[in-house]
Design a protein around this nucleic acid. Structure first.
Length: 294
DNA sequence: TACCAGGTAAAAA
DNA sequence: TTTTTACATGGT
């Protein structure tokens, strides 16, 4: 099936950007493949861009997945509801974001298939380097994920809730993070918490619900907002790497405090989180182009 | 080797 | 109320 999106989108660029956050893994490529759950069971979905403007995506699954469900998942993976046009209008005259946004047309933060996965990503990435967190997640997925074609389906909250502590610890989780993950998984599995239902809520309502969970602090909530809910206001201002990047582009070159970072991006509200994402990607591409400048 | 890396909650002050 | 500490892995 073909799905047309509102506003600019570049799948290849977005895949590249996603891969740039995990050095040493994932080649990027032109095709987005993901394992999803459907009413017909686990399935592998393939998304390719077949037209630039307007953006058209060819979406397919080997298994017979109901068209409406396939469309819904595909739109979620590419953050289809995040329209970049108002963001580009807003940044157009900004001395720094203007040129950067113009150099990354159609870039979006690609989303995991589920909000549970987004939450697990946030928790594993707390404090650790992205590479270390990625290895830990890979071990969890290899141990508990379901194979679908050549992919692995991310484990369900139920599976994680029932997983032996020792096995999760052997994947590299600290006892503390193990507790966060278990608590979250258990709450979801027991229908005490419904992350997916929160997609209907306003940004601040999502923040309020997420922060209730042990293990999800300010940083994680903002991270999940941008990278799981595709909300452009999600800005983890306590993030050490962001403080460095935003200081580089919008400050004196030195890392900013959380308060300074928020002040620097304030004019770009309500797209301040997306703006920070663009700066991060620009910074990484710059470093990749010329490692001496990193 | 030692240190830091896209934090959080609980303890201590 | 604010500051300090334990936590676990991987890259430099």
């Amino acid at each position: 099936m073909i799905e047309t999106l509102d506003g600019p989108f570049d799948l290849t660029l977005s895949l590249q950007a996603a891969a740039s956050f995990y050095p040493g893994d994932e080649p990027g490529g032109r095709t987005l493949r993901a394992a999803i759950r459907s009413s017909a069971g686990p399935a592998a979905i393939t998304i390719e861009q077949v037209n630039r403007t307007p953006p058209r995506l060819a979406v397919s699954a080997a298994r017979a997945v109901e068209a409406a469900a396939l469309r819904r998942v595909a739109r979620r993976l590419v953050a289809a509801d995040l329209d970049l046009r108002p963001f580009y209008r807003l940044t157009q005259k900004h001395p720094v974001l203007g040129p950067i946004a113009a150099s990354l047309p159609g870039l979006k933060p690609l989303q995991p298939a589920s909000l549970f996965e987004a939450a697990v990503i946030a928790i594993t990435e707390q404090q650790l380097s992205m590479a270390a967190a990625y290895r830990i997640r890979s071990r969890i997925v290899r141990r508990f994920g379901e194979p679908v074609e050549d992919l692995l389906l991310f484990p369900t909250p139920q599976t994680i809730a029932e997983a032996p502590d020792q096995v999760l610890a052997d994947c590299g989780l600290s006892r503390q993070k193990l507790r966060y993950l278990k608590t979250l998984a258990l709450r979801i599995a027991s229908h005490d918490l419904d992350l997916e239902a929160m997609r209907e809520l306003a940004d601040d309502e999502i923040r309020a619900c997420l922060i209730e969970n042990p293990g999800l602090g300010r940083w994680s909530v903002e991270h999940i907002l941008l990278r799981g809910f595709a909300r452009p206001s999600g800005l983890p201002s306590g993030d050490v790497s962001l403080q460095k990047v935003v200081g580089f582009y919008l400050g004196q070159g030195l890392p900013l405090s959380a308060a300074e970072l928020e002040r620097a991006l304030c004019p770009l509200r309500p797209f301040h989180g997306l703006a920070a994402f663009y700066l991060s990607v620009a910074y990484r591409r710059r470093a990749q182009l010329d490692p001496r400048r990193a």
